[in-house]
Amino acid sequence: MWPLLSGGQPVPVAMHDGPIKEIAWIPEMNLLATGSWDKTLKYWDARQSNPVHTQQLPDRCYAMTVKYPLMVVGTADRNLVVFNLQNPQTEYKRIQSPLRYQTRCVAAFPDQQGFLVGSIEGRVGVHHLDEAQHNKNFTFKCHRENNEIYSVNSLNFHPVHHTFATAGSDGAFNFWDKDSKQRLKAMQRCSLPIPCSAFNNDGSIFAYAVCYDWSKGAENHNPAAAKTQIYLHLPQDAEVKAKPRAGNAGRK
């Protein structure tokens, strides 16, 4: 933790026995959550050296999303572990990913009623937690070019319009509407992969990083060309605002 206001030095606030893959600050609990390859999820009070709670995971943590009280942790072996943070010491539900290949990213719905999951196979799953809504679950292909399949590295919901963005190892990002099952906008590809991305608090800026992501191994790494850049895109309403569903024209 780096206390900016006091100008102090960074101090360690969390520790695991393996690499820490995901972190999330949960303001409603005033706690930090960390997910690790040591197969644990830990909650930390930054004022204490020991975790408030350690939760065993079925496998290594690969992805995590929090939209209080919903938390979803994606682990190796395609497990998706759902927690209700009002009772964080008990798993709410554990499901197998609707995607057949390794989980890369997850994103909770803004209304906490479900989540998105993205995989290395250029595919995204839309999953509702309420079994009565399971007829709305579906998967779709993305980040594919001809016969090349690229990983979906990042999923982010727009904070106002509740559409979402995907970013992938093909160097592209796209905006989608899950309710109408439409792609709203496909952006031109960058020369290198996009490993991560995020909207700012009001959705007026979409930030994304561009760099080599090692998805094609060390032999394809060119240090001279693999420059790391961060870009800011200013989304237009037409790119991120949900379009009326077919059949709703003329209704009030």
Rank of each mutant, 00 (worst) to 15 (best):
Q9L: 11
Q9F: 01
Q9G: 08
P10M: 10
P10I: 15
P10Q: 14
P10C: 10
V11T: 13
P12E: 04
P12M: 02
P12I: 01
P12F: 06
P12D: 12
V13P: 00
V13K: 00
V13E: 00
A14F: 14
A14V: 10
A14G: 15
M15E: 14
M15N: 12
M15V: 12
M15R: 11
H16M: 10
H16T: 11
H16R: 07
D17L: 11
D17K: 13
G18N: 11
P19T: 10
P19D: 12
P19W: 10
I20D: 04
I20T: 14
I20A: 06
I20W: 08
I20P: 08
K21R: 14
K21V: 01
E22Y: 01
E22T: 15
E22L: 04
E22N: 08
I23F: 07
A24D: 09
A24W: 09
A24M: 09
W25V: 09
I26T: 11
I26F: 01
I26Q: 05
P27F: 01
P27R: 07
P27K: 04
P27A: 00
E28H: 04
E28C: 02
E28M: 03
M29D: 13
M29F: 05
M29G: 04
M29W: 13
N30I: 01
N30E: 12
N30S: 09
N30W: 05
L31Y: 09
L31P: 09
L31F: 14
L31V: 09
L32K: 06
L32Y: 08
L32H: 06
L32G: 07
A33Q: 02
A33I: 12
A33H: 02
T34F: 03
T34R: 01
T34V: 09
T34N: 06
T34I: 05
G35N: 08
G35Q: 07
G35I: 11
S36A: 15
S36M: 09
W37V: 01
W37P: 00
W37N: 08
W37M: 11
D38W: 03
D38E: 11
D38A: 04
K39E: 15
K39P: 00
T40G: 07
T40L: 06
T40K: 10
L41P: 08
L41F: 03
Y43V: 02
Y43K: 02
Y43W: 05
Y43M: 10
W44Q: 07
W44K: 03
